[in-house]
Structure formats: structure tokens, C-alpha cells
Design a protein around this nucleic acid. Structure first.
Lengths: 342, 342
DNA sequence: GTCGAATCTGGAAACGTTTCCAGATCGGCC
DNA sequence: GGCCGATCTGGAAACGTTTCCAGATTCGAC
């Protein structure tokens, strides 16, 4: 930790010119070549680097964007964070990670805290949403982009995960499965609700050629919760396929099947959702519905970048969407009498 | 996006008192109850919330700490980030994520950029280190804590991963394995070098009861690189155990073994390192050497919190360490002819 | 009743930067 | 040579906050 840093005033003094000229010279606008040279030299000698806070105060821009989720450890959010960082960093923006907390109220608090002006924008992916949150976002003093659900008058990047569940069900029917179970997460979350809707729609659809469909709900979108829910579901009846609401739950289900001596995909086909790396390396590797997490992150980052660019939020809210697509792997392999694990 | 935010001056005006008193009243220090009441009311009416930038400029503190790693997608770093955030957030500090890049030079650039004063401190876990980086860190204008390697005169949280490899080797010998391979990552990285040292030491040790030991090097600490290195290693000779330098490499090795029809742990015992969630849910679940990622993150966060607290960096650098410990799971199970799950 | 201490208040400066405004210099062109 | 425009420079204000300093008021105690 060296002595306190050089300030622009000191550079100006050293170069023997005014503060204004010094700023201009370094900023590269409207200064004579001689001036630029002179100031550059002085700045270099003093090891000057401009103070971000002073600059922010004057320019009313922090060059920071926040990314907020409930649980930064979740692989999906990690992918988003990575993508957002990759888009923003080259434009000179820093990324601040924040937590939405588990409840709507804490998310609202977070959005309100933007009033402190420590970031120029926010990308948020809330697990739960309601009108107060939507309203808080509309009132927010900086641009906000929501990942996960489209809300009136709010920039968003969504994906049709209900549709995604449909893809999984269709795939299972196609490979000849008829008795299909569904392990979902909490229904009061945005993804939980959407995926339930998707499963119900797919199995109630006239084109549904299956014989049986039933749902079991896990407490949480985790492996442990999936294991427990899987046990309950498999104990209830005799199924030949399970759709899980995300990859972690799917892994839990595969473990539950293993306990009962069922092979995957031989006795039981299993699908996940989110197409995470953890599902890819799992054995059997998971057939999964990709919701384009990285892509959604990228889009959200671009959206927020646009908004903070000039700022006048006159143009209407932009809702963009990423289509789900199925990635078939070992956990629903049809022919080969698996070799899969162990 | 509503109209521009209320400022302290406006609150003062509305309350009909001076700026100074307003600040004091809100800050809660040295103001009469009546004054506090009055100002609070005015602030509430205007929906005032203090501007972070103005406050930072005056106080010379940003209430932000940066966390920098090469690859934020790596599960180990995610764990650290989570832990750091958990420690810092309750103290009112925000976490800014940054990338060190792959090279020492880019890491040095990052450290130098701290001169802009956008954070009060930095936690960094560099893959590669050298004297220029160490010197840059010592000269840094804000406190820096290094995770991963102890350097002279620099706060650090390290772990003896060489020792950790020793634990893995000892465990394998103990369960009766004798021909042990090692899949390492790049040698020019700090962890790569340490782990190689550990393996060489363990296998050269007089107490080494094995018959054979050999190393194969992967390009990177990833599953894919581990798969390729695993193939090469297993093709070379007949081993009954493999130590991998981290969990991702270990997963690659298990896959390579699968390709050759070898069972794990039956034909081949495999150990990983880092004790990641991905290793825990993998089948077979991975025996792994925990390096306490979350714990290291917590310690680093506390260290940096201490330093930014009052700041006078007169007290000497503090080097703290987290001991590695082995977590035994299925991939080195000894007796039961596996059944994988519980 | 007076004095001192304690408590509270307001003015003003400071943090480091960018940018508006006006003045100065210079060059070119008629 | 004079004038106009272009180019460049410096002074000063502004961003929003905290805090030093001094002045004012109150209160209790002698």
C-alpha cells in the first residue's frame, strides 16, 4: 500500500497548465498536440490514474451494473453471470453481484436500494414475482432488465420453459415411454409454476399418447430434494420415464432409481432441464432441455447496455425470448442397452 | 424510471434546517430528538436515499470489494465467491467480480487498476504468480488478500495442496492399491506445480509401499482435458488407481476408464481434489481432497474486512492456511461391490 | 446571578472530476 | 492591414456528501 494517489490537480500543477486543460488533454478532446504531450508526460511521471468516484459524481455514471439472483451458487446463474461479465467488461462496465433473497419483499428492497445510485443498471432474475415487485422495477431510478419472466412495461429476456417441458414429454413419448412422472420444484416460484403448466398441458393435450401422468413436488430445486421426491414418486407407481424440472432434480431422481435397482435409461428414462455442465458430465449424461442460460445472460447484458448508453428511456420496453431446445443424451438413450455407469 | 432522485439539500430545505444538521440527523449522531424527527419526516416525504457516489467521494470509501479469478465458472471459485459475499454483505460491502485473465501480465494490470479507487479492497486468486505480481500487490493502493499461495509481505490464505495429494496417495495405498497414476493440470500454474510436488514427494517417500507411479499432464483443469489425459495414462500401463489434481479431471479419468471397460472403483480407484458438489453427485461419487474453498473465501473476506476497517496497514501481513482433508466416497470404496448410491 | 460546561446548530470547506463559458491567440482571406 | 472564424486555454461551477469550526443556546451548579 503506497502513499496516497496522485490527483488531477497535481498533474496540472506539474505540467504547469490549468486543470481544465489537463482533463481535456487526458480525455483526448480539444487539446493541442503539445498540450497532450506535456500532460501525458506529467501524468506518467506521477503515475496518475483518474479517480473513479470523482468521475462518477461528476458524470452521474458509475460504470457498474448489478446482477442479482437468489443463489449465486446455482449453475444456471453462474452461466448467466459469466455471460453478462463477458459482454459488459469490454465496454468498461464492472459487475456487482447481489442477492435478491428468497422472498419478493427482499427483492423489492433490493430494487429500491438502487436509489443509492451505486450502479447504472440492474439485471435481475427473481425466483418469485408479484405486482409490488413489478411496480418497484418500473419506478426504479436506473434501467432494470428481468431474466425469467416478461412483465408489462419492463425489459425482459424470457424463455418458454412450459414449452420446454412439452419438448421433454414429446421426446419421451417418441422413444416409446408411456407412464410418465414429473418431479417439479416449489409451485410458488416462477419456474415452478411455468413448468407445472407445461407438464399439465402436455399430458392433457389430445395428442398425448401416454397412459399415465403424475406429479411429485420437491421442496427445492436441489439434488437432495430431487432424491426425496424421486423416492416418493417411484414408490407410488410403476413408471417408465420421469421428467424433472431441472438438472439437479433429475440427478436426484436417477439416484432414487438406483436405490430401487432401476437402471437409467433401461428401466427408467429421465430428462432434466437447463442443460448444465453438471448434467453433461453426470453418468448417465442427462438428456436436458436447454433454456439458453448463457444466451439469456448475453441478451440481458446487451439490453441493459443499450439503456445505460444514452439513457432516455423513451423507447418502449423490449421483451426478448430464447427458445428452449432439447439435447438428447444417455439418460434417454433408446437403443443401446446402456453401458452408462459404473 | 422515475424523475431524478431527491438530494440531501432538498431534504434540508424541506425540513427548514441546515445541510449539516440534516446529515447529522440522518446519520444519527449529535442531533436533538426533535431535529431527528423533523429531518426523518422530510426525508421520508421526499423518498430520499443517500447518494453512494457523493458519500464515497467525501468518505474516501466505496464500500465495495473486488473478487478476481481467471474463470468465474469454476465451481471452486463459485464457492469462494458465495462465501465472500456472505461475509461482506452483512457489513454493507458490495462485491465486484473481475477477471484476472490467464496471464500474469493481465493480473498485474488488474491490480494496478485498483489505483482508480473503485473498491476498498481486493481478494484475488491468481492461477499464475511471479515477482512482478507480488510487487504490484505490495504497491497496491488498497488492501489485497491472495488466496492460493503465500507471498512475502502479503496477506494470504493458502492451503497445502501438495500435502493434500499426499493424503490421496496414502489413502490409496491403505486400501491396497499399488500402481498409482497421477493426472495433473498445467505445471506452470500455482496449483499444478504444488500438486506435482506433492505427488513426487509422496511417491518418492521411503514409506511409499507402491510398486509404480507415473504422471500424465492435462492441458487444463477441465473434464475434457481429463478425459484425454486419462486415455493416454491408462493406455500406457496397467494401473489400479489414479490421483487427479482436481474433481473435473477426476471425472474425465472415470470416463476414460469407462471407455476401456474398467469399473470404478473395482478395477480402478480414482480420487479428485476440491470436494466440489459436482464430484459429490457424480456416480460413482468422488473421493476427494477438500481444500476448504468456502472456508478460504470466508477467511480472505474477513482479512480484507479487517484491513479496510481502519486501514492503517502497519500490522504485518497475515498468512493464514486451511488444512486439506480427505473425504472418502464411492470412487475408492473398498469392500462392498458397489451399488453406487445410498 | 454568573460562570462554565455541555449540547446543539449553521456556514463553509473539502473530496476529484468534467464541462460550460469567456477570453486569448493564431491563421487565413479579402 | 483588418476582420472573422477556428482553435486553444484557464477560471469557475457543479455533482452530493461529511465534517471541521465556531457561534448560539441551554442547563446545572456554585
Amino acid at each position: 500500500m503506497s502513499s496516497s494517489r496522485a490527483t488531477l490537480i497535481q498533474v496540472a500543477r506539474r505540467a504547469g497548465v490549468s486543470l481544465a486543460s489537463t482533463s481535456r488533454a487526458l480525455h483526448g478532446t480539444g487539446a493541442s498536440p503539445a498540450m497532450v504531450e506535456r500532460v501525458r508526460a506529467a501524468a506518467a511521471e506521477l503515475g496518475y490514474s483518474p479517480d473513479a468516484t470523482g468521475r462518477s459524481l461528476r458524470m452521474k455514471r458509475t460504470f457498474q451494473v448489478a446482477f442479482a439472483v437468489a443463489d449465486i451458487g446455482n449453475p444456471v446463474y453462474v452461466e448467466m453471470l459469466t455471460a453478462i461479465h463477458e459482454v459488459l467488461a469490454p465496454h468498461g462496465y464492472r459487475v456487482v453481484v447481489m442477492s435478491t433473497g428468497q422472498t419478493v419483499a427482499s427483492t423489492v428492497d433490493l430494487v429500491r436500494s438502487l436509489g443509492s445510485g451505486f450502479v447504472d443498471g440492474l439485471v435481475v432474475s427473481p425466483l418469485r414475482t408479484d405486482d409490488t415487485l413489478a411496480e418497484a422495477i418500473r419506478q426504479a431510478p436506473v434501467p432494470v432488465v428481468v431474466i425469467g419472466r416478461s412483465l408489462d412495461g419492463i425489459d425482459s429476456v424470457s424463455t418458454d420453459s412450459a414449452d420446454g417441458i412439452g419438448l421433454a414429454v414429446a421426446h419421451l413419448l417418441e422413444i416409446g415411454r408411456r407412464r410418465i412422472g414429473f418431479v417439479n420444484g416449489p409451485l410458488d416460484t416462477t419456474p415452478g409454476a411455468a413448468r407445472q403448466r407445461g407438464f399439465d398441458a402436455a399430458t392433457a393435450h389430445p395428442g398425448f399418447t401416454g397412459e399415465h401422468a403424475e406429479t411429485e413436488r420437491a421442496d427445492d430445486f436441489t439434488v437432495t430434494a430431487g432424491l426425496e421426491a424421486g423416492r416418493r414418486l417411484l414408490a407410488r407407481g410403476d413408471l417408465d420415464a420421469v421428467v424433472a424440472a431441472n438438472d439437479l432434480l433429475a440427478i436426484g431422481v436417477v439416484r432414487a432409481a438406483g436405490e430401487l435397482g432401476l437402471t437409467v435409461p433401461g428401466d427408467l428414462a429421465v430428462t432434466g432441464m437447463d442443460d448444465t455442465e453438471i448434467g453433461q458430465v453426470f453418468r448417465p449424461s442427462l438428456t436436458s432441455v436447454s433454456l439458453g442460460s448463457a444466451e439469456r445472460g448475453r441478451l440481458a447484458a446487451r439490453l441493459v447496455l443499450d439503456r445505460v448508453g444514452d439513457g432516455d428511456g423513451v423507447d418502449p420496453a423490449r421483451q426478448s425470448a430464447v427458445g428452449p431446445h432439447l439435447v438428447v443424451r444417455e439418460s434417454t438413450a433408446v437403443a443401446s442397452k446402456e453401458k452408462s455407469a459404473r
